[in-house]
Amino acid sequence: MVSPDDVEKIANLADIRLSGDRLGEFTREFNAILEYFDILDTVAEEAGEKRGEFNIMREDEVTPSLPQGEVLALPRDSEEGFIRAPRVME
């Protein structure tokens, strides 16, 4: 069982805003789903190793980059070749 506090903590970590009135409902749904997930506790840990491909690599060969104009056409804000972003504080 998770509490509304736990859900709020996760929401903070995920940068997802949950309004107060939705928090209770969300917590209930969350618990119903987690309860369903509990069946995973029955899975044996020593399950066989998954074997797939490995060492997939490419050669160190330059391919053309996008023209700056095309890159700067994507965001809403740019300035002297840079892309503008909300302020970050150190």
Binding site: D15, I16, R17, L74, P75, R84, A85, P86, R87, M89
Partner: peptide, 22 residues
């Protein structure tokens, strides 16, 4: 930031990011 619609860029980063996702 790189595409899509940003929030107010004068907001602190995490607030703006949250707003975009909300």
């Amino acid at each position: 930031v790189r595409y899509g619609t940003p929030d107010d860029i004068r907001k602190p980063w995490h607030d703006a990011f949250r707003e975009v996702r909300a």
